[in-house]
Simulated assay, not measured.
Amino acid sequence: MPKRPSALSLSSYGMGWSTKRRTAVIALAAAVVLTVTAAVAWLSGAGDQPPAPQTAAPVPPHPHSSPQNGAQHAPGTGSGPRSVAKPPRTAEPVPYAKAAARMLWSYDTRDTSRDQQLAGMHAWMTRQNGYTDWASVSVQVPDPVLWSRMADQDQHATGTATEGHYPGAFKAALAEDPSAITKAYIYVVTVNGHQKIAWKKGGSGAEERAVTLAVQCRPGHDCALAGIAPSVTQ
């Protein structure tokens, strides 16, 4: 069997922790990522803050659409996405999060450069200042050297989202203070699924995937991705 090349995949940081600690960490991470005060005061829980990513990917230009309130323009180069899916037009957090997870778990180095991958991913991000964590998303893409090696092997992957749900901590917070969501309209959604990977000479494999996403869904606007948080599956 051919040796499997390195895969583009979501970080497994924190997967060995207890449910209690993972819940505390995602709460803290989401509070930092979203920079929300009253809206997500419930996210201020205890626990150690996850370390910053070791390698931050460059920010590509935003490929389309007009800005929302307080637009955020991303500098950089890149000729635009090829195989990266476009964000769906929906105001429903869970369907949007499932689509975003599929996008994050899918790539094709045969016809998409690293800059194009980043540009396609950035199209999913909210452009409202103070509510976006591009670094948590862009760091999912391998560095240029690894991407080049993956391309040498014609590596490509397809993600499938089998289910999405609001974590228990998020639902409990909404029940306690339903009006808090109206400050930023940030929803926390955990998505479970799997990723199929293939490369030269018939090589292939599959892995289970889980990711917790922060999604902004303001009334009258399509949803947008705010960032990625450590995994929590409750």
Rank of each mutant, 00 (worst) to 15 (best):
L43A: 15
S113F: 03
H64E: 09
K98T: 07
V94D: 14
S66K: 12
T109W: 11
D48S: 12
G45D: 13
P60Q: 01
G70I: 05
S83P: 00
E92P: 00
P61S: 00
H62N: 11
W105D: 15
A91Y: 00
P75H: 09
T55K: 08
R82T: 14
Y107V: 02
P61R: 04
N69W: 08
G76P: 08
H73K: 06
S113E: 04
P58A: 07
D48C: 01
P87L: 09
R102T: 15
S44W: 10
V94T: 11
G80W: 10
T77A: 09
T77V: 09
H64R: 13
A101T: 11
Q49C: 12
A46W: 12
P87Q: 07
A56E: 10
K98V: 01
D111H: 04
A52W: 04
S44T: 13
H62C: 07
A85M: 03
W105M: 15
A41C: 11
H62I: 05
S65G: 02
S65R: 13
S83T: 11
P88Q: 07
A74W: 12
V59F: 06
W42P: 00
A46E: 12
T109P: 09
K98C: 15
T55S: 12
K98N: 06
W105Q: 09
P93R: 03
A74T: 04
G76K: 06
H64F: 04
A85L: 07
T77M: 08
D111S: 14
T112K: 00
Q68M: 00
T55D: 14
R82E: 06
T109A: 15
T109L: 13
Y96A: 08
P95R: 03
P88I: 02
S65H: 01
L104K: 06
T77H: 09
P61L: 10
A97Y: 06
S65A: 09
D111Q: 11
G70C: 03
A91F: 00
R89F: 09
P93M: 07
G47Q: 09
Y107T: 02
A74N: 06
T112A: 02
A41P: 02
G80P: 09
S65F: 01
P67W: 05
R110W: 01
V94S: 07
V84D: 00
S66Y: 08
S44H: 12
G78N: 11
A100I: 01
P87I: 03
S44Y: 12
V59Q: 06
H73D: 11
P87C: 10
G47C: 03
H62A: 06
D48T: 14
P51A: 14
M103N: 10
P93A: 10
T77F: 11
A101R: 01
A52S: 14
P51Y: 05
A91D: 13
A57V: 04
A56V: 13
P60L: 03
E92Y: 01
G47F: 10
H62Q: 07
A41G: 15
A52N: 08
H64Y: 10
G76I: 06
P50E: 08
A46G: 07
L43G: 15
T109R: 12
Q68D: 11
G76S: 08
P67E: 02
P60A: 03
P58G: 03
A101H: 08
K86S: 15
G45C: 09
S66G: 03
S83I: 00
E92F: 00
D111V: 13
G76Y: 00
S65M: 07
